[in-house]
Amino acid sequence: MIVVMKVGAPDEEVARLNQEFQSWGLTPETIVGKHKTVIGLVGDTIDLDALQMQDMSPWIEQVLRVEKPFKRVSREYRHGEPSEVMVPTPNDVIPFSEQAPIVVVAGPCSVENEAMIIETAQRVKASGAQFLRGGAYKPRTSPYAFQGHGESALELLAAARAASGLGIITEVMDTADLDRIAEVADVLQVGARNMQNFSLLKKVGAQDKPVLLKRGMSATIDEWLMAAEYILAAGNPNVILCERGIRTFDRQYARNTLDLAVIPVLRSLTHLPIMIDPSHGTGKAEYVPAMAMAAIAAGTDALMIEVHPNPAKALSDGPQSLTPERFDRLMQAELSLIGQATGRWPKPAAMAL
């Protein structure tokens, strides 16, 4: 249930109502938008009468029920306003939002050695990426496949961050590693295989770093949004949703089926920012540029693209990784063209005001 306050509602009246709702055993959450303040009510509201609640204050404009199973994640919860996830990086604070320029995350599937990760970071930064992705801990289908270098790779990510000024996004697989990873990462990634690891979701929800939540390979949209609800319910409102392809019946030509229709669907359902990963979504480097352009045209807020200086020798996911040269052409020509047409492409640093 949400309580929409009238424009200009005094802070004192909002505070009084919050105290009243708390006395009813509810958890009120105040959301200050550009034009109005909304009080979200979490708890047992089934017996509350919306019309009677409107008489509680002359500053209450409307009381609405959120009918969807996901409450805090719902777009209704913010009265239609998009959320903005602000991520501090060494050189800037980067917003993820439907009202902000598109954010590009790039880098290898896994951190292999210091020279490779620093070279990749510097090259994707020169091409316009704002974040470096790289796995220290890697969930793999086979127990014999490369699992990542673990804690030593976190030190290499920190070195790449210092050398490039990029923000760091890396995956957390185990609650035991959360604190150590959070010391290095600017955004914590929960991977597709852990989307419904509810213990992990609660833990990342109880800390302050933003969370990138990847869609499970067979997850419905409702299941995905309910997973995000776990994080928000634990206290962390800074969640970015990442579509990375779902498993369907045809896997002969592409690794997964990249669900670009999810962009307008999510836009209608949730206030959370949206990222598209065309690398995992297709599994083949030659398909990544087309799907990245399509994602921008469809309205994505961010892209995650795998880049490796020598994909043929990559320890994981080489076939879907672009070379730095191909990534640069993609950024400077194809993506910038579509991004400028949609009014979402960031200005080069030299042109920024």
Rank of each mutant, 00 (worst) to 15 (best):
S164C: 09
L241E: 00
L225F: 07
A234E: 04
M217Y: 10
L200N: 01
K203D: 13
E223I: 00
M226A: 10
L178V: 07
G191I: 06
R215T: 03
V211H: 06
G205W: 03
K209R: 15
K209L: 11
Q207G: 11
M226V: 04
G235N: 01
N194V: 08
I246N: 11
L178D: 09
A206Q: 14
K214F: 02
E171N: 08
V184F: 03
A234C: 07
M195Q: 13
L232D: 09
A206R: 09
R215N: 06
S199W: 12
E171F: 09
I169Y: 11
I240T: 09
L178I: 09
R215W: 02
E171T: 12
L213I: 05
S199A: 15
L166E: 12
D222G: 10
A182C: 12
R193M: 00
V190M: 08
Q207N: 11
L213A: 01
M217R: 12
L166A: 04
G245H: 13
A206T: 07
A228E: 01
M173K: 13
A192S: 12
R215V: 05
N236D: 03
G191N: 03
Y230L: 06
N197V: 08
V204W: 05
A192R: 11
L178Y: 10
I221C: 12
A182S: 15
T175C: 08
D177F: 12
I231A: 01
D208A: 15
V184G: 02
V190I: 15
K202C: 11
I231N: 01
R193G: 01
V187F: 06
K203E: 15
C242H: 08
I181H: 04
I246F: 11
D177A: 14
I246S: 14
E229A: 02
V184L: 04
V187N: 12
K214G: 00
G235W: 06
N194Q: 10
W224G: 01
A163Q: 07
R215G: 01
A206C: 07
L213F: 02
R180T: 15
E229Q: 09
G205I: 00
V184W: 01
N194D: 13
L241M: 04
R244K: 04
A233I: 10
K203N: 14
A182D: 10
D222P: 10
I181S: 03
W224R: 00
R244M: 06
E243Q: 02
M173H: 14
A234Y: 02
A182L: 10
T220A: 03
T175E: 05
L188K: 10
G191L: 01
Q207W: 04
L200F: 01
L232P: 11
V172P: 10
G191H: 06
N238D: 15
D222F: 12
Q196F: 09
E243D: 03
S218T: 14
K202L: 13
A219F: 00
G191A: 02
D222E: 15
I221Y: 12
L166M: 01
A192L: 02
L200G: 03
R244L: 03
R180W: 09
P237G: 03
L225S: 02
L225T: 03
